[in-house]
Design a protein around this nucleic acid. Structure first.
Lengths: 110, 110
DNA sequence: ATAATATACCTAGATAATCTAGGTATAAGG
DNA sequence: CCTTATACCTAGATTATCTAGGTATATTAT
């Protein structure tokens, strides 16, 4: 994310990526754009952040990857969520809900 | 926070601390307990996390500190939020809202 | 009385998430 | 043809938090 946001919430990027991949398989560059679009410009992932995350998700077998070329010749690496990835997503979503509710509870008093 | 939570949301601890201090001045150990209680055990700050945060908040002049002894002789360091701290809290709260709404938007599809 | 636990503060070094700042290569648009 | 956008990648820096210690005193249990 952009530097200013590091103070707010790192640590859930993998979850966001898995959430997008649940809908359909996507390639890295596309994920960055989609996250930006769907979050109304709030998330602006750097490539240096996303690609390592994709690689580690792949190593954990939460996603699989396949290479494909566009008709014009561009090479893309498509990522597809696995059953384990869907499970991990559910777990992370629950963690997120617990966490954000707790934050809200604390902030309510302020 | 507990290790398992590092994957979810580091980066907002200072905000939570400021939020507590808005209500009343508190000492470090008390902050840890209060955060745990008010968050229903979700936040379990380690001393090694909190004390450095308090020191940096003090250096940024978002809080001031004063030492006080209890009748029984225990030494405590009370922290009090400053005007700048209140301003910073508001800014962080807004950041948080923007961020959590964006996350919710992404997760909604999953 | 004494031992164990809780309170209350602290710091140095490790770990891990993200960013910075590069790099390569090809396609599309001016 | 030159610039910009697309598309992938990595090494090293930065930073938040944790781990794992440390000190000292008060309270509670034996």
């Amino acid at each position: 994310m952009a530097r200013s946001d590091r103070s707010v919430l790192p640590g859930s990027t993998a979850m966001l990526v898995l959430a997008l991949l649940k809908a359909r398989e996507m390639y890295g560059y596309e994920i960055i754009e989609e996250l930006e679009k769907r979050s109304n410009q709030v998330f602006q992932l750097k490539e240096g952040t996303l690609y390592p995350i994709l690689h580690s998700l792949e190593k954990e077998k939460l996603v699989t990857a396949r290479d494909q070329e566009t008709p014009s010749g561009r090479k893309r690496r498509y990522y597809h969520i696995t059953a384990a990835g869907l499970q991990a997503l559910d777990a992370k979503k629950e963690e997120w809900q617990t966490f954000s509710q707790a934050v809200t509870a604390i902030l309510a008093g302020a």
